[in-house]
Simulated scan of single mutants.
Amino acid sequence: MVSGEIGAVLQAQSQTGRGRSDGPGWLDAPAAARRSTVWQAMGFVNSALAVPSPDALALLRARAYAEGTSLDELAARVLDRTVPLDDLAPDADSSR
């Protein structure tokens, strides 16, 4: 019980003291840290398929839904390059 409290205080202190000089404060929030994988995968899709970020996110969500997996899991696989980016293209299914 005491060790949990000490851990929570130390973690909060390290997050507070860390600071981010290159962006807004909300980027340090735990929710932002959890979604960073999705944001990186969106960037991969955005660049590779030349689609806007909202469309990149929609393509990732559609693929995750179709596979019955979470968006976070799919994003990790995109970053690991186990999901070919061409497979996420809007017309990829029509060529099969």
Score class of each variant (00 low, 15 high):
1 M>D: 00
2 V>T: 04
3 S>V: 02
4 G>A: 06
5 E>N: 11
6 I>W: 00
8 A>L: 01
8 A>N: 03
11 Q>K: 08
12 A>F: 01
13 Q>T: 13
14 S>H: 14
14 S>D: 14
15 Q>F: 12
15 Q>N: 14
15 Q>L: 11
16 T>E: 15
17 G>H: 14
17 G>C: 14
19 G>H: 12
20 R>C: 15
20 R>N: 15
22 D>M: 13
26 W>F: 15
26 W>P: 15
30 P>V: 06
31 A>Y: 13
34 R>M: 11
34 R>A: 14
37 T>L: 12
37 T>M: 13
37 T>W: 09
37 T>F: 04
40 Q>A: 14
40 Q>F: 08
41 A>E: 00
43 G>V: 02
43 G>S: 02
45 V>D: 02
48 A>W: 08
50 A>N: 13
51 V>G: 10
51 V>N: 11
51 V>I: 12
52 P>G: 03
52 P>K: 00
54 P>D: 09
55 D>Q: 06
55 D>W: 10
55 D>V: 10
55 D>P: 03
58 A>R: 13
61 R>E: 12
61 R>H: 07
61 R>F: 08
62 A>E: 01
65 Y>L: 11
65 Y>H: 09
65 Y>P: 08
66 A>G: 01
66 A>N: 08
67 E>K: 13
67 E>Q: 10
69 T>L: 09
71 L>M: 06
71 L>E: 06
74 L>T: 06
75 A>E: 04
77 R>W: 10
77 R>Y: 05
77 R>F: 06
78 V>S: 05
79 L>I: 06
82 T>L: 11
82 T>E: 03
84 P>D: 01
84 P>A: 04
88 L>T: 00
89 A>F: 01
92 A>S: 00
94 S>F: 06
